[in-house]
Design a protein around this nucleic acid. Structure first.
Length: 559
RNA sequence: GCGUCCGUAGCUCAGGGGAUAGAGUAUUGCCCUCCGAAGGCAAGGGUCGCAGGUUCGAUUCCUGCCGGACGCGCCA
């Protein structure tokens, strides 16, 4: 809650207590929980209804058995005179609408200048550590659009949690130990043999993208490799693909603190240890030659095989072992960003962790699941990439529309909605592109400051005694209100692990600023008015920049 | 069949017990001798899938139904 809101909250709470007590002191017991919930101040959707609206009279009506408007009357009478409140008004079914003074609205400006890149940050995390695992693509091909969505969401969520004083670590988990890698190896081997003129059947579950041919060519020329040395082919192909993925991630502006290899879980004996602990827990049994985990004891709809009849482990066993390491490494939150086709695995991994009886909480790890992205161009779905064959790559999108637009588009929707990535819209260097709309607002603010021969630092130094009471225009009130709400928006985005709130905020803030720009002039002759307005422009630029930074999108000085 | 998620403007999607349900885009007008028109202003466009329930108040919460996506392997 921002400063003004929290002080209003306590003032209205007190007024409500007085009003209720005046009706009858007995009623305070019933009323207290409603008042103490402190969830009764809202931003009216209609600006004519004031800066804040108090809904307490309606919320209290039942507990107190009085007419809401009557309660509102008593509360209004009990309100003290405050320098921040210009007036209050009872409206509708029992709202108390609050109109702030210009100075109270503008109090956010010096706050922005004082906190700079920290403006909007809060302390929801209290220094706890959080591990964000995302992308985690198998090194079997270039990153696809789904990985792009994960990269955009994961990096933004990591930034958003950092802004709440979480100690955040970004991790990429490589499944480098399974069948898919084996198929990759066989695919490269097949292409290499074919290129060498040796007849060879392409494996049934092989990868058909053109990149396999490229890797085969490079293997032949760089290694002059033995075509039957599967280990040599495997390590060459995996390295080539990991390098390529890393290049794309760098181009996307995403950096990881750690890459965790699935194979290390085997070499470190973590998988064996986990299996032994699960057996010791008594939650396993043998049947049909396989070892099963009683995941149904933890809410799964059927038990799951851990060790197949052939002696190898199913994928979820190393997954459980991996999540044990997250817990043992001391992360109080582990957040996994994955495609929604993985939702079936959640119950399994959590069941495995709980069966270990290590005190790992039920909700560890947490999941952000995202749905499919459909890429459209010219009104038709794009399914093919030259390089990957059957899917559109992150690289394709970055090359075509640029990093900022890709990050913006892939963060702009709630993770669990399926959405359409319109390449034509993202490409448009014109007004219909929402990325440019937001970036232009920042460039425009910077341009105004340049024209006035000032900058943020200069405005910040003079902000303490700036004549903010001159900011009386409707656009100024709206913009100040928006700037004030920034930290509330960030808190919601952090609680819900949802970056799209920040995008929506940016569009609103840009809209407020563009509207203001067209309605009023900043560089005016009246020195005081000019001073106040330029402070507001500089503060707006700062918040645009902060919010864009959370999403990994640049805030250009000029465009 | 069971589970998770989703049905909101022509299209793409936000919102989520509160006052007249929003944005972008598309359509139609208007605004640069003036800080960047990559901008602004205005108009039209809605049974918030359907039906019950809870509530002072439901598009929002609950139940059922209809429609869609994705899971439900000794695949990962």
């Amino acid at each position: 809650m921002n400063d003004i809101k929290s002080s209003l909250s306590s003032v209205f709470g007190d007024a409500a207590r007085q009003a209720v007590t005046a009706f009858s002191p007995d009623l305070i017991t019933a009323a207290a929980p409603v008042i103490d919930a402190a969830n009764f101040l809202e931003r009216p959707s209609n600006a004519a209804h004031g800066d804040y609206a108090c809904t307490l009279p309606m919320l209290l009506a039942r507990a107190v058995k009085k007419n809401p408007r009557e309660i509102a009357q008593r509360m209004k009478a009990a309100l003290p005179a405050l320098p921040t409140i210009a007036r209050t008004e009872i409206a509708g079914a029992g709202f108390i609408n609050v109109y702030l003074t210009e100075s109270a609205r503008a109090a956010v400006i010096p706050q922005i200048f004082a906190q700079k890149e920290r403006y909007g940050c809060r302390d929801l995390g209290r220094g706890q550590s959080a591990l964000i695992e995302f992308v985690s693509a198998n090194p079997t091909g270039p990153l696809h659009v789904g990985h792009g969505r994960q990269a955009a969401l994961g990096d933004a969520i990591a930034n958003i949690l950092s802004a709440q004083n979480y100690n955040v670590h970004r991790e990429f988990y490589y499944n480098d130990a399974g069948n898919q890698i084996h198929n990759l190896t066989l695919s490269v081997q097949a292409r290499a043999k074919t290129l060498s003129g040796i007849p060879f059947d392409f494996p049934e579950n092989g990868y058909h993208g053109e990149y396999i041919v490229e890797i085969a060519q490079r293997y032949l020329s760089e290694k002059a490799g033995d075509l039957d040395d599967l280990e040599a082919i495997r390590s060459f192909a995996v390295k080539a693909l990991r390098d390529e993925q890393n290049v794309d991630l760098t181009a996307f502006g995403v950096a990881f603190d750690n890459f965790y290899l699935e194979s290390s879980l085997y070499t470190d004996k973590r998988v064996d240890t986990t299996v032994n602990q699960l057996i010791a827990s008594g939650k396993t049994y043998e049947q049909d030659g396989a070892l099963w985990l009683k995941t149904t004891d933890f809410g799964d709809d059927k038990d799951r095989v851990m060790r197949k009849a052939d002696g190898s482990y199913t994928y979820f066993v190393p997954d459980v072992a991996y999540h044990v390491t997250k817990w043992e490494r001391g992360y109080s939150r582990a957040i996994n960003i994955q495609g929604s086709d993985h939702h079936g695995t959640i119950a399994r991994v959590r069941a495995g962790l709980r069966a270990l009886n290590m005190g790992i909480p039920d909700a560890f790890p947490e999941y952000v699941l995202h749905k499919m992205v459909t890429v459209m161009r010219g009104g038709e779905e794009v399914k093919i990439s030259k390089r990957a064959g059957s899917y559109v790559t992150v690289r394709d999108l970055i090359d075509e529309v640029g990093r900022d637009a890709v990050r913006f588009f892939l963060s702009m929707r709630k993770a669990d909605t399926e959405f359409v990535f319109d390449i034509d819209l993202a490409r448009a260097k014109a007004e219909e592109n929402p990325v440019y709309y937001v970036q232009y607002a920042h460039a425009r603010a910077m341009s105004v400051l340049r024209q006035a021969e000032v900058d943020e630092n200069k405005m910040a130094q003079s902000a303490t005694n700036a004549p903010f009471h001159l900011l009386t225009r409707p656009h100024e009130a709206a913009l100040l209100r928006r700037l004030t709400d920034y930290s509330d928006t960030l808190a919601v985005a952090a609680k819900e692990l949802s970056p799209h709130y920040v995008i929506a905020y940016l569009r609103d803030l840009a809209s407020d600023f563009h509207g203001y720009y067209n309605a009023e002039r900043f560089i005016v002759d009246d020195a005081d008015l000019r001073h106040a307005r330029l402070c507001l422009v500089a503060a707006t630029g700062r918040v645009l920049k902060n919010a864009l930074a959370l999403l990994g999108i640049s805030a250009p000085q000029a465009m």
